[in-house]
């Protein structure tokens, strides 16, 4: 299914946040939202999830405006991995992942055999089988992220929206999370909309062989849209983030090349 954002404009009262944002995501593709704090990444994600009514423009899933879906229908097309999740009640990992099947039961329904199987498969796909019977509140931050990823996967939606999914993770957990995500994209052909502070993530998608587009956002201005190599340049980083930066490329022992952004100073 194709997901598109069509010349979307959104303001909170007088404050213009999103201006003429347009992009499409086909299956197996990723879109990376980059931009400083307050540039509207979360607002855009919320528009895609149908939480905001834009002043003009629209977000469509399979050609249909997301605002015309019921919550139940939309959850079958778009899943969500929240930026902040405060674990409270110690559900088991299995129970938590199974909640991803909420949209597939009747009004007063209980999860059925199929739901349990799909939750089990999602747990396997994310590689957390050994945690399945643990209370998810007792897990580490990285493990909780994987549980929420499995829950989103269990929703069996074409598009997964991730808001800063690795914001609080250490190097290893960040790598594990992204690596898991990449293999899911390859295997399940899901589409990804990811908001992130780590510009390097855009390069990682590309290096993993996933078609990726970057939307570099600046509050109230039209975003820069294109391939990572086109958009992520010292000039654009200076303009959008207000820092001078260096983009370097290095190869590991096997000759695989990796690019990264280093901030070198404050731009005036």
């Amino acid at each position: 299914m194709k997901y598109s954002v069509n010349t979307l404009c959104f303001s909170y009262g007088e404050t213009e946040i999103l201006k003429n944002v347009s992009f499409e995501i086909n299956s197996g593709e990723a879109v990376c939202l980059l931009g400083p704090n307050g540039s509207g990444k979360t607002t855009l994600a919320d528009c895609v999830l149908g939480f905001h009514s834009p002043q003009s423009g629209s977000v469509t899933a399979g050609g249909r405006n997301v605002l015309d879906f019921s919550r139940k229908e939309l959850a079958k097309h778009i899943s969500y991995l929240p930026q902040t999740h405060n674990p409270l009640f110690p559900y088991t990992v299995r129970e938590t992942v199974l909640m991803g099947r909420s949209a597939y039961s009747g009004v007063f329904g209980q999860p059925g055999e199929t739901d349990e199987e799909l939750a089990e498969k999602a747990i396997g796909a994310v590689g957390i089988e050994s945690l399945a019977d643990r209370q998810y509140t007792t897990l580490s931050g990285g493990e909780i992220r994987l549980v929420l990823l499995a829950r989103a996967l269990a929703q069996d939606a074409g598009l997964m929206v991730l808001d800063e999914p690795t914001a609080s993770l250490d190097f290893r957990n960040e790598y594990i999370f992204l690596d898991t995500l990449f293999s899911l994209i390859h295997e399940k052909r899901i589409s990804i909309l990811i908001a992130t502070h780590s510009i390097d993530h855009a390069f990682r998608f590309e290096e993993a062989g996933i078609p990726v587009r970057v939307i570099m956002m600046k509050k109230g201005a039209e975003p820069l849209t294109g391939a990572p190599s086109e958009i992520i340049t010292p000039a654009s980083i200076k303009e959008v983030f207000g820092v001078s930066a260096l983009i370097t490329e290095a190869a590991d022992d096997t000759g695989r090349k990796f690019r990264s952004v280093s901030v070198t100073g404050k731009a005036n």
Partner: peptide, 24 residues
């Protein structure tokens, strides 16, 4: 009693429950 399983999703907070497909 009839809503009991959906209460799990509701306990994740309104926004998450909505994205899980629950009419909050």
């Amino acid at each position: 009693f009839l809503s009991r399983w959906k209460i799990n999703a509701l306990s994740m907070g309104d926004k998450e429950a909505a994205t899980l497909g629950v009419d909050v």
